[in-house]
Design a protein around this nucleic acid. Sequence first.
DNA 1: AAGCGCCTCCTCCCCGGGGAGGAGGGCGAG
DNA 2: CTCGCCCTCCTCCCCGGGGAGGAGGCGCTT
Lengths: 221, 221
Amino acid sequence: MPVRVLLVDDDDLMRAGLRSILASDARIEVVGEASGGRAAIGEARSLTPHVVLMDVRMPDLDGIAATREVLSTAPDAKVVILTTFENDEYVFGALEAGASGFLLKRTSPEGLIGAIHTVVAGDALLSPSVTRTVIDRAARQPRPAAHTARDLGRLTPRERDVLELVARGLSNAEIAEALVVEETTVKTHVKHLLGKLGLRDRVQAVIFAYESGLSTPGSQG
Amino acid sequence: MPVRVLLVDDDDLMRAGLRSILASDARIEVVGEASGGRAAIGEARSLTPHVVLMDVRMPDLDGIAATREVLSTAPDAKVVILTTFENDEYVFGALEAGASGFLLKRTSPEGLIGAIHTVVAGDALLSPSVTRTVIDRAARQPRPAAHTARDLGRLTPRERDVLELVARGLSNAEIAEALVVEETTVKTHVKHLLGKLGLRDRVQAVIFAYESGLSTPGSQG
DNA sequence: AAGCGCCTCCTCCCCGGGGAGGAGGGCGAG
DNA sequence: CTCGCCCTCCTCCCCGGGGAGGAGGCGCTT
């Protein structure tokens, strides 16, 4: 039974190239292609590939977000990021999204084929130069976080107020009391900020607050 | 100019085997051997190898400590850990000590030779199965702190598991899936841990996790 | 004047989550 | 052996919170 592979890249030529490289291994079958993140999500669902080779930079939805989506609907699939750029944001974004591999496009054809078999075996793999940066973060952990500030900027002042209180563990009723508005108003603000930040519920909002630096450990008892 | 390599392993046969493998590559020269950590430190100083292949389990001084010592006196040297055991303590100990690679002894001869050239190029490299654990730690993050131990200590292991996933923003259903138990079981654990910690709901549990150091900013996206 | 974003508030609806209480099995300590 | 803790799972119940949709007022820009 061959390994089912889905190719995701906005560049037609790149997909064709990958297809021809993978054709050299009889244990690998390319079951489909997608030229964007949105399409990839649909294809991943309908084609049930074992491995998704995913580009990062794509017009409609980037590879990181697409990876997150694909894995949420198909947790058994393995996603290998394939990109030209070695970029910390990409690397950690991809890994946090659940990617099993992060390869640079300068990888050899044999390396790519080997990578596919490696991830189906349940192991992970990174390009050597990427490994360096990952190790640095695993050994001692700094923290970048740049895009979260941008997301916060999308919130209105009132929404930020509410988020802050949500992150303190207050209920909607308590927030309403604190801000001297009705509870329904609070619910509206919460609804909006969850939507803007792409979060499911207030639990994830608390996590977001801490991860983005809006809240910090020690800021309360 | 060949790559100068120092072999460190308490097993004579292993050193002989490594020597013969490396002999197949003309770009590599084995300049010395050591059968223990203490000896390795001295040899590394006098022989100025580019790469040290270091075993972990050794009688007098283990490979992790030896790595730390070697690199403190010869920061330009690259240390590659070579071990039979894939052990989290070894892996992170080695990486924190500054090792450039962590290979299992089941690595192929070609892989070993490739590894040496990889690290001299300034890159790092891990065995695939090790990569998996390193990624997990780089993506999510590390350890509880000491002062939470009192409160956390009141929780059963299972309750701590659940708290950790609650703090990641998972719903009860998702936690159930992750732990392979029924949702009702998860609800029971959640109920108990909330009671023990004196918290009202899972939102406050997330806050507790961050404030206590169980979760840390940077541990997720 | 028209349009837009923000804040405020509303209703209807549904679900996830937490409370209460109970039950069986495994396992270690006394 | 028995007691007690832990893990597992169950039912019944209720409420908080989030989704959908709408509305009025205010102040900004065009």
